[in-house]
Design a protein around this nucleic acid. Sequence first.
DNA 1: CTTATATTTCTATAAAACTGGAAATATGGA
DNA 2: TCCATATTTCCAGTTTTATAGAAATATAAG
Lengths: 126, 126
Amino acid sequence: MELIESLAALKALAHPTRLGLYRALVQAGPQGLPVGALADQLAVPGSTLSAHLRVLRAAGLVLDAREGRVIRCRADYMRMDALLAYLTENCCAGAAPCVPRPACKPASATTRPSRHETLPRARRRR
Amino acid sequence: MELIESLAALKALAHPTRLGLYRALVQAGPQGLPVGALADQLAVPGSTLSAHLRVLRAAGLVLDAREGRVIRCRADYMRMDALLAYLTENCCAGAAPCVPRPACKPASATTRPSRHETLPRARRRR
DNA sequence: CTTATATTTCTATAAAACTGGAAATATGGA
DNA sequence: TCCATATTTCCAGTTTTATAGAAATATAAG
């Protein structure tokens, strides 16, 4: 990923509502969520939500497809990986300690549709 | 890292000059660069540069220490790692393919930057 | 004490981003 | 066709952020 694209991705994520949207989609997994579900979850007016989604889409972080009347969005994991790679590129002037980070893949190949998508499950942080 | 801090870091990086500054520091390695060197490299007026550095410092991405007349800045790698961790937290709904990413450590594990961080600044006014 | 260098703060202006109501578009169904 | 739902676009007012000159501060050196 190059400078322009990385900047677009960073700008897209640098807003509380959009970061919330993106994270909701990341946690929803490969099947994503409809716009309406995002509106419910984030409690933001339709036009505002749409504007934010547009930014995320333009940055390539969110993909979507229409399914009848609803539009289903999902996070593009590869794009996030590319951003992470860019941010740490040439880290430490190329010295040893910087390991290329393993990608977070869409789990497309072997994963069936998740049946336990319901609970966001309490998170434990450091 | 929590939401507020992550947002601050993302906002700080979401600007071409600041991203350039940060990357220059990342590539400079643990010894960092003086503000003047950054000014030369990025070709931006002093006051503008200073404003951007302030944002990066407030976000915790850049640390600095005065060395005589110059102020030497360096990237805080651990902060970046924390941001990356936050961005991929619960990725794919916790499914297998998401590996915790290895940290990018400052080349010398024994470097002790120590705590002359942000000291109370006696400000005299005109 | 004075001067030179490095960097920051102050200040005003300019530019960009955010917000949400109203209107428009797309789709499926009666 | 007409209606309801889902989502977007348009628009204008508001808020935030960026920019850079000038002045101020900090340090070192003569």
